[in-house]
Design a protein around this nucleic acid. Sequence first.
DNA 1: CTTATATGTAATATATACTTGACATAATGT
DNA 2: ACATTATGTCAAGTATATATTACATATAAG
Lengths: 80, 80
Amino acid sequence: MEKYTVRNKIRKLRFQNNEMTQEQLAEKAGVTRQTIIAIESAKYSPSLELAFRIALAFGVPLGDVFSYDPEDESNQIINK
Amino acid sequence: MEKYTVRNKIRKLRFQNNEMTQEQLAEKAGVTRQTIIAIESAKYSPSLELAFRIALAFGVPLGDVFSYDPEDESNQIINK
DNA sequence: CTTATATGTAATATATACTTGACATAATGT
DNA sequence: ACATTATGTCAAGTATATATTACATATAAG
């Protein structure tokens, strides 16, 4: 029954790679800056195609940008 | 200027893995059979989230199911 | 010949991704 | 004080993914 969520490292990658700006990434990925903002802040998750293009823009495989993880991150220590 | 396209190996994987039927895969991925048909026959490419769930259903990483390739496959031998 | 199962197609409807445009703010530089 | 650059937000519209329903076909089994 586990619930999963899509996570991304766009922000990290933007700063590692040439201090890439949102607008530059948007242009490289062929998409609007609004779209980058929305994805970066996880307002929604991109289409598979766009996910591939973003990974391409950074020159890394898709798995280095996006992951599909269980929605935990809270209850590790708290369990009694 | 290269044009890319999303390709998938769903059909192959369905037959390798337990002769999985479209409906079974749909159920595992939490989606309609129609959606599986459309993606399998590349009528459209899935959302990133669904792509992850399909890969999970097969127990393989996303890259084993979907790829982002140049739209060639035609002009290799024909170039004079 | 019928029944069941797997696959395909098509129409309409809903949800979500993506665009466009406008405006706000903080930081930096002149 | 003004201009520029990067980031963020909000609203309305367009495009595409996904759901729903219904029907068609092929195959294998009885």
